[in-house]
Amino acid sequence: MRPILLSGHERALTQVRYNPDGDLIFSVSKDQQICVWFAHNGERLGTYRGHQGAIWTIDVDPTSTILASGSADNTIRLWDIKTGKCLKTWDFPTAVKRVEFNEDGTQLLGVTEKRMGHMGTIVVLDVKIDVEAEQTDEKALTIVCEESKATVAGWSYLSKYIIAGHEDGSISQFDGKSGDLLYNFPIHELNQQITDLQWSQDRTYFITSSKDKTAKLISAKELEVFKSYATDTPLNSAAIAPNKDFVILGGGQAAMDVTTTSARQGKFEARFYHKIFEDEIGRVRGHFGPLNTVAADPTGKGYASGGEDGYVRVHAFDKGYYDFMYEVERERANKLAAAAATAMA
């Protein structure tokens, strides 16, 4: 099927997110706008105005009621999704690079940039998923990253851990309540920054992407690296496809080098890898700049990618995607089906 091209942004995309129902797509870009779109036809529902700097990150609460965004104007803002009203603004000394709600929407974490003498931090804010409620000014927690600044972070299952990816290619596991550092492991090549961290649906494992051209699948509890996906280009984003055992990776020649190389050099493609076998399965072309962000539809019907070229492309999966199976997978599926059949009988 033809992809839907969302051309509402004027500058490079920074993050794209689906709401948990998979019917809305939120996108943010360096043009200081948040857009919300219908996932099924690409119609723009509206924009959220107020930020005065490039917006780096966005997240939706599990009930699709409120929206959190982090920006280079040194604020995190909360928005009423329905009305577009800004509900709350938290100010920070530096830009906010990543925000994420925990699984029950009671807390929000933010990653702040290291700049102008300020250390990079991860802050935790208590939020109420209620457009009427007064939001607190107090930070529930502040974790200071002394070694290497955090570039991305997220909540594990049960909000038990906060996992952060760092500029030096390592990941950290913090206690979700106390903020104590439990572990720090180098995962990617030294000093190749981690560019994205996205969760599986139950938040027991996650995928990281890095400038070292690999993406890794890691468990939240033991920080065990299950899988590694090697590509030929620096990666900016990685997502885990629900319902199928695939992962989606996006990247391309670093934006600043693009003009000096030929277009074929850019490798501006979304890549699909088999989650378990680590093989590349397919590529989707279309962007004419590196992919800055990819997001999988939580219902498993498609995915969206946002590029340096300022476009969001929304792809619906076709039959081939659903039917694709390795011989051993089909074997297993058949076995399970047979077992189910006998159980029924």
Binding site: Y157, D202, F226, K275, I276, E327, V328, R332
Partner: peptide, 30 residues
């Protein structure tokens, strides 16, 4: 190759199973 894949698949799904069970247990405990 097929053998290796079968093993990988098995490893993965057995990990998933135990993790899912653990998760539910933990939830109930909380």
């Amino acid at each position: 190759v097929v053998e290796a894949r079968r093993r990988q698949l098995l490893d993965w799904y057995s990990w998933r199973e135990t993790t899912e069970e653990e998760l539910i247990e933990e939830r109930l405990a909380l």
